[in-house]
């Protein structure tokens, strides 16, 4: 028998089934209910927007990695997740070329220039959305639900007025807003799926949403309207839980969620923008390394050295 054929490698010799691709696939599955809901609410153009963003994100990642002679990692599906998330953050009527530009920012400027998956410090989809909000202020805030409708405002802009949608409408999502953010029901289904599959833990999302509810209640506003309006659920479930840009420890996640919640309410209630979720997450992304350092797990049996 040919003994030279035995492989000698370090332990452990078995590995769990979960890999990067399976995690990303789970995230895609978790976003599918919101995708279906957005197609029902906003029509076929929603599906087209998602397809365009996914295709451009994957293509930009592929081209950039080829150009830089790096390993091509589009197979890990992370670019697909970024594409879907970015599309979820855009109004349905936005011109295609602007969406493609957003994808370029997300994949090349925010993700690949910092070293690719796992190395970026800011969430690509959120940063791209903010770049677009500033660059294309007009189209980014035109929340018309269909081609012939006149521009309809988001619930956050309508809060306190008579045209504020009912809580049920907010929950089901048939109102103005970005593609994937309106249907709370679909987002919550995705959240439960991610929890069941153990892709994320509840900490960030629950603390983020809870902080917003509590803080707005203290300010005398309707906490349920705040929770169900705008991009809070989308951000708290899918973007504040991104691995590389948020803390990985339990207490780190709690602090991250708390910070996000406070900043969101401050911007929504006192700031110049109606929506603050994206800014909140981006600001907290920047603090992530410090939060991680502060919340390291206690080492079992560790003794402090002089």
């Amino acid at each position: 028998m040919d003994n030279g054929m035995l492989l000698v490698s370090p332990a452990p010799h078995i590995r769990s089934k979960t890999n990067t691709q399976s995690i990303m696939l789970d995230v895609i599955i978790a976003m599918t209910p919101a995708l279906i809901a957005s197609t029902i609410i906003f029509g076929w153009r929603a599906l087209v927007m998602v397809a365009v963003c996914v295709a451009s994100c994957v293509l930009f990642e592929f081209l950039f990695q080829k150009l830089c002679k790096r390993d091509v990692t589009v197979g890990d599906l992370s670019a697909v997740v970024t594409g879907m998330l970015l599309a979820f953050n855009l109004p349905v009527r936005i011109p295609i070329w602007q969406a493609v530009f957003g994808c370029l920012v997300a994949i090349v400027a925010v993700k690949q220039l910092f070293g690719g998956i796992g190395k970026n410090f800011a969430n690509p989809a959120i940063t791209a959305r903010l770049v677009m909000t500033i660059s294309f202020a007009g189209t980014m805030t035109n929340f018309a639900t269909s081609a012939d409708a006149t521009s309809s405002a988001t619930p956050l802009a309508l809060m306190g007025t008579e045209s504020m949608p009912s809580l049920l409408t907010l929950f089901l999502g048939n109102h103005g807003g970005s593609l994937g953010e309106t249907c709370a029901l679909a987002l919550i289904i995705g959240f439960v799926y991610l929890l069941v599959r153990r892709v994320i833990t509840w900490h960030t999302t629950v603390v983020f949403v809870g902080t917003v509810a509590l803080f707005t209640l203290c300010l005398g506003q309707n906490p349920l309207e705040h929770v169900l309006s705008g991009g809070l659920l989308l951000g708290a479930i899918f973007m504040a839980t991104d691995y590389s840009t948020t803390p990985s420890t339990k207490w780190g996640k709690v602090i991250f969620g708390l910070g996000c919640g406070i900043i969101t309410v401050l911007i929504r209630v006192f700031g110049g923008y109606p929506e603050g979720v994206s800014f909140a997450i981006l600001l907290m992304n920047i603090l992530t390394p410090y939060i991680s350092k502060l919340t390291r797990r206690k080492i079992f049996g560790g003794v402090k050295r002089k």
Binding site: N19, T20, I117, G118, K119, Y243, S244, T249, I299, F300
Partner: peptide, 21 residues
Amino acid sequence: PPKVTPCIKCGRCVEHCPFGL
């Protein structure tokens, strides 16, 4: 051996370390 891919900072290694390293 499985293909090694870049670290995605998921934190699973920290979470599962019996000693919290």
